[in-house]
Design a protein around this nucleic acid. Sequence first.
DNA 1: TAGATTGTTAATCGATTAACAATC
DNA 2: TAGATTGTTAATCGATTAACAATC
Lengths: 225, 225
Amino acid sequence: MKRIKVSNNVIRRLPRYLRKLDELKASGVGRISSSNLGQQLGLTPSQIRQDFSSFGEFGQQGYGYNVAALRDEIASILGIDRGFKAILIGVGNIGHALMDNFCFSEWGFSLEAAFDIDPEIVGTVTKGVSVKSMDELPDYLRTNKIDVAVLTVPKEAAVPVARLLYNSGISAIWNFTNVELTEPNSSSLVENVHFSDSLLSLSYYVSERYDEEAARAARLARSEK
Amino acid sequence: MKRIKVSNNVIRRLPRYLRKLDELKASGVGRISSSNLGQQLGLTPSQIRQDFSSFGEFGQQGYGYNVAALRDEIASILGIDRGFKAILIGVGNIGHALMDNFCFSEWGFSLEAAFDIDPEIVGTVTKGVSVKSMDELPDYLRTNKIDVAVLTVPKEAAVPVARLLYNSGISAIWNFTNVELTEPNSSSLVENVHFSDSLLSLSYYVSERYDEEAARAARLARSEK
DNA sequence: TAGATTGTTAATCGATTAACAATC
DNA sequence: TAGATTGTTAATCGATTAACAATC
């Protein structure tokens, strides 16, 4: 039912709404107004109402929003109930940590299989998911309808493996390698989790704060002379 | 030297610039124009020149930008040369993966120590970083000037540990727990790495694409009748 | 010198905020 | 009914893009 084009900013806020609504639901809150929700998320009530109204009318005048119903609407907008299938490629440290820790099913995904090149790892099973050999990947993709590939291979392997995935016609890649995967002629969606980008942004903000503090201290020292 | 307030959007683009410039440098490219760089990053030349001009004049008319010099400017703006010190809290799967795989020093950070509650893990050493007991944390923070805490504890521990860090006056938290840490009265910076938010955004885009394809197919089927 | 490309000012576009009639 | 709060239209704000004089 999503006809109109919804902006990126709105879409990036949806998972936060979902998280907060889950939390509210868990703590027994039955309804919430846009201004209350806004307070809890650091957003204006206007923005929240605008965001939701991109997708429909989920509230009720004089009442607000039903937490459980709104939660389910947003979950559905995000595609949680579509039963997307994923595979994971590269069972190294981060790949294994994801298999072990990350609850794919909580977000509506089913992790179908993992792939690795190392014969020591091939054949092992983690949380019910078995690791197959990379050799089997092309065939596996042909015979199974996979929506998302989780890419957790080493840097060097990122581009060739991504190309293999593009050519297999995979819909999307969830990219944990710190490599820019934007292949111009590919139609696969790419979502990046760049740890270093995140840390560097933080580094900037910390630097900025230290500079401000130093400037304030310097002003103070001058005025005390 | 950063006086004027620079927008969030700009700051989030800086690490991408850095990554691309590193790549260009590695492949022997000495200079680049804003339009060429824009093409490679999917940005307009105007935007790139605007972004850089927030921080100074790094280019030269008729020539463009010197790749190595620009790279160093951006690295410095991001605070890479400030020698920030980090500790990691929670040596589970993801914490251990970070210790093992993530090259803190590449981004100017030094990982000084790790902390965990499990006696089995306390005392172990990974990549030269030893794991201390959580009991030692308050004391450690008092006697060592730490800038950033990497938070990789289980969900349940996130809020109490974060509170301990706030109270110790830590500057920033790099948060890998899927918990909203926004403590209103705290002045610590928080940078979130929310895997699930990232996956859910991707889930939305995949859903959107499937819907579009289905709509196109339906139109086609109708017109063929 | 002529061509290229910057830094910056102005114009456009899009996103956020404010306001308010509708209505539960 | 009166009060609260929505959904939406209009106003504002900020970010991106375009244009161009300056200059290497």
